[in-house]
Design a binder for these strands. Structure first.
Length: 270
DNA sequence: ATATGCACCTGTGTGC
DNA sequence: TGCACACAGGTGCATA
């Protein structure tokens, strides 16, 4: 479910409550996530204080006082929610951290594609596959030339390749390509300098606006305090196939690309 | 090296 | 109502 704007919204809503908090209890109800939770997960977290909360692409990093890190990925359907300690748990609430301040943080994930993992500092195999952050260090036009040179894959697939760019997923890839006027199926190497310029601008505009609006709440995404995001109201193409393009009224098309839905305006995007 | 297809899960919506 | 099927914000591995 969550892409960069949703993960960043979760981070911002958690940060003031969890940084400085000490973990007073850990409850695990389901260890089978994307990979099984380590046997010593609870023991290693117990009693530790959170010193910072960072984000890289779609990953959250809870820094602990002694140099360890709790790495969290929300997968397709994961969420982190804060609530009063002792609040009864719901279905798919898999992991609960109770803090020293009448507060608990619950990891809920129906599909269990999410990840929770303890390790030292940034020493995670998962992070080695995450490239530059698409919000805080988006590529310049010249860098885009290098990233696309010789690449035969579709530009949308390149945008979603986390090794190239951390944070862009299926919704925001379609949205930024609409804003840039580029079809999702265009081979990356064929984009002109003008198109790459528009794409670089569109990436910043879409991601910044989405974060301002708290991400996209399509079915049930909420931030850590239970608040919905509002960027879905501004989706120009995502999940709007058949509806008129806001710019030219041509019906939006849906195509399947590498097994994922892509949405675009056949007239505005070339 | 590069690109694609599928598996991993549960829930929801649609059509018969 | 029941059932089958398609599809959903992601990633990793196997295969050409």
């Amino acid at each position: 479910m969550p892409e960069l704007p949703e993960v960043e919204t979760t981070r911002r809503s958690l940060q003031p409550h969890v940084v400085g908090a000490r973990i007073a209890a850990v409850t695990v109800r389901e260890r089978r996530l994307r990979r099984p939770l380590d046997d010593d997960f609870e023991r290693r977290l117990f009693g530790r204080q959170i010193t910072a909360l960072e984000r890289r692409g779609k990953y959250l990093l809870f820094r602990l006082e002694d140099g360890d890190t709790l790495l969290v990925h929300l997968g397709m359907s994961g969420s982190l929610e804060l609530m009063k300690a002792g609040t009864p748990l719901a279905v798919h609430d898999h992991v609960v951290l109770i803090f020293d301040r009448d507060l608990q943080m619950v990891f809920n994930d129906p599909r269990r594609f999410g990840l929770m993992r303890l390790g030292h500092a940034d020493d995670f195999a998962e992070l080695r596959n995450v490239g530059r952050d698409s919000l805080s260090s988006a590529p310049s036009v010249d860098e885009w030339r290098g990233l696309t040179r010789g690449r035969k894959l579709a530009i949308k697939n390149l945008l979603m390749d986390q090794r190239v760019l951390g944070g862009v997923g299926n919704i925001y890839a379609s949205e930024m390509l609409f804003l840039a006027g580029v079809r999702p199926g265009r081979r990356a190497a064929t984009l002109t300098r003008a198109e790459l310029t528009r794409l670089a601008d569109a990436m910043r505009a879409v991601l910044e606006r989405a974060v301002e609006l708290g991400g996209s709440s399509i079915s049930d995404y909420r931030d850590a305090n239970g608040n919905a995001g509002y960027f879905q109201i501004h989706h120009a193409v995502y999940d709007r196939d058949g509806q008129p393009c806001a710019k030219c009224t041509t019906p939006i098309k849906r195509v399947v690309q590498s097994g994922r839905s892509s949405f675009y305006c056949p007239k505005c995007q070339r």
